[in-house]
Amino acid sequence: MNHGPLIFLGILFTLALSWCGLVFAPQIQFGRQEVVNAKGQLYPPNRPGLAQQGGEVYRANGCQYCHSQQVQPKGLGADLERGWGKRYSVAQDYLRDVPVMWGNLRIGPDLTNVGLRRPDDETHTNRVWHFQHLYRPQITSPGSIMPPYPFLFEKRQVRRGQPASPDALPLIGQYKTELSYEIVPTSAARALVAYLFSLQSDTPLFEAPIPSEFTSGVDTNAPGAMSTNAVSPALTNAVAPASTSPPKQ
């Protein structure tokens, strides 16, 4: 029986079916998503140049093979309970990423909101933490099996009489370098840390409202409202019941 042409058509049709259903349909439905205005801010925000380069370092070194970047909704994992985010991740969060690096394995913790768990501030504590963690993960997380990335740092000699670089890693104990040498992060390390600081996605969106237990009782969509009682002043306006003119706002 030569059913060659029929088989050929069937072969074509079945793959076309899955292509249309799984590739084409999503592309049509949300392949043209744009940045949205979430309470006065553009979401997702544009990554500054250094953070963008950091994303390249993240991709090139395959960080996604151990770290995921997606928060699961409640009931499908303990992500929210572990403080890995205030809300589950949605498509909008990854709009600006190329490639989208969700990760499939959690040998290391989820990094979707690591920029919120360890934010950058004037004290630079978290910045130093990240550099130490990248240089030798055992310093900050004893027992971790994350590989060290010494090639993201360079060993420099501190010349006699010169001060150490402000970026030099504070290393103690067995990790200390020899006298008159210091470990300084390269631009790749800086970029990567900038990228990690940029990983934040707690802005509530239409499709991902923040569950009430994270807004301290007041339903507010103020971005970045972590655990403060950001009460809108208007909500406390009470108009006195029996007066002809309403009180001042």
Partner: peptide, 23 residues
């Protein structure tokens, strides 16, 4: 619906869950 994610069963539920009705 492309706006319905994990915990919600339908768009109506998403709308209800939004204290701010949205854009």
């Amino acid at each position: 619906d492309p706006r319905v994610y994990g915990p919600f069963a339908s768009l109506k539920e998403v709308q209800k869950a939004n204290p701010d009705v949205g854009v």
